[in-house]
Computed example of a mutant assay.
Amino acid sequence: MQLALQHADVSRLARRLASRVPVDASPAAESRLAAVSAVLRVVDGAPELLFIKRAELERDPWSGHMAFPGGRLEPGDASLEVTAVRETQEELALDLTQGRMLGRLDDLAPHNRSLPPIIIRPFVAIVEPDVMFMPSEEVAATFWVPLARLQHESSRARYEVEMNGIRASFPAFRVEQHIVWGLTERIVRQLLALVSP
């Protein structure tokens, strides 16, 4: 993993994650806890970020959305970092213990009150460039996206959606023909802020 960390953006990100104190949310009594993994690799000298497109499932409030692998804290999980690693293994057969956990970002909660009350803790990991994985039935597609593309103004977009009968507009990123918005967009923004010089 040392070779990958020699890339300026990844090295800067690792240093900043190690030196900052992430913001912990104060969950309401009914809030569930969850964790996601923002997974990086370096290919041909360029860092890339892994996105998944969630499968269309009735029971999933984020059905069909662009996301990061992750899920809810289970009783057997010793920590939310363990949750992030376990969920990434379950959804992608990707073992983050073979890579390196760089740190975590600030906790997030949905702004939309119609979504389940949940606190999400994002973790940032880096894996080997040739890593292989096998998506489960929960994952419709996977995308490696260069950080440089996400940093470019042309990737920025607005996402219009009707929520509870009200039309709302949210900041978003374009990833191929898909739109990254909501919690995932907020995680990407945190990550890019730490990568920027």
Rank of each mutant, 00 (worst) to 15 (best):
A4K: 02
L5I: 13
A8V: 10
V10C: 05
S11I: 06
S11P: 02
L13T: 04
R16A: 02
A18S: 06
V21A: 14
D24T: 07
A25L: 12
E30M: 02
E30L: 13
S31L: 03
R32D: 05
V36L: 08
V36N: 02
S37M: 09
S37F: 10
V39C: 03
L40R: 09
A46G: 00
E48R: 14
L49R: 09
L50T: 06
L50C: 08
R54T: 10
R54D: 15
E58S: 14
D60I: 05
W62S: 14
H65N: 12
M66Y: 02
A67K: 04
A67W: 08
G71I: 03
R72E: 08
R72A: 05
L73Q: 09
E74L: 15
P75K: 07
G76N: 04
L80M: 11
L80F: 06
E87I: 00
E87R: 08
E90R: 13
L92V: 04
A93E: 12
A93L: 06
L94H: 02
M101R: 13
M101E: 11
R104F: 04
D106C: 06
D106I: 04
L108N: 03
A109H: 14
P110R: 12
N112P: 08
N112D: 15
L115M: 15
I119G: 07
I120P: 06
R121I: 08
P122L: 06
F123Q: 03
V124S: 13
P129I: 11
V131S: 15
P135N: 01
P135H: 11
S136V: 01
V139R: 09
T142S: 11
R149F: 10
L150S: 05
H152P: 04
E153D: 12
E153M: 04
S155N: 11
S155F: 14
R156I: 07
R156A: 12
R156Y: 11
A157I: 11
A157W: 13
M163V: 15
N164V: 06
I166T: 08
R167P: 06
A172D: 02
R174W: 03
E176C: 04
R186N: 14
I187W: 13
Q190D: 05
A193T: 02
L194F: 09
S196C: 09
S196I: 01
